[in-house]
């Protein structure tokens, strides 16, 4: 798997894909995109790193335990929900305190979508790394 071209391309592509995923997350409210798609794209980026440089490198590149990331994501979803709940009395009610100040509606819904993004990204990456490591274990046993 250690192809020089793949490794080099990955170094170059990964930040690009990650930036793209954030962009897709943010534009999701008005254009095609959103948390699910963005999150999957993050996982694709790390799958690329994993294929090019191995699980260890991918884990290092992520800097944070992927399941923790997923947990933070769920927390963001909950926080987005409670935000509306506390301000308006309805759980998950949309709140936009900075509507259109930044060119897109910033508020509880965006926080919720960010949660989806992080949860999907974290979970899929976690399974990916887990599968690859378990694969090594199986292979190791067969040797």
């Amino acid at each position: 798997m250690n192809s020089l071209i793949l490794t080099t391309a990955t170094r170059f592509l990964t930040p690009l894909i990650l930036a793209l995923s954030v962009f897709i997350l943010l534009r999701g409210h008005n254009e095609p995109g959103g948390g699910f798609i963005g999150g999957l794209l993050v996982a694709v980026a790390f799958a690329l790193v994993e294929k090019a440089e191995g699980v260890e490198a991918a884990r290092r590149a992520m800097r944070i335990e992927p399941l923790v990331l997923a947990g933070i994501g769920l927390g963001c979803c909950l926080a987005g929900g409670y935000w509306g709940g506390i301000v308006h009395g309805d759980f998950l009610r949309g709140i936009w305190p900075w509507y259109e100040e930044y060119g897109l509606p910033v508020g509880s819904i965006l926080l919720f979508d960010l949660g989806v993004y992080l949860a999907v990204a974290g979970t899929v990456s976690a399974i990916l790394f887990g599968l690859e490591e378990a694969g090594h274990a199986v292979a190791g046993r067969d040797d």
Partner: peptide, 17 residues
């Protein structure tokens, strides 16, 4: 569906192991 597939895959791995 993808989450379900991942879980099934993990189970398949473990079962084979």
């Amino acid at each position: 569906g993808f989450g379900l597939l991942s879980f099934a895959l993990a189970l398949v791995f473990r079962t084979y192991f």
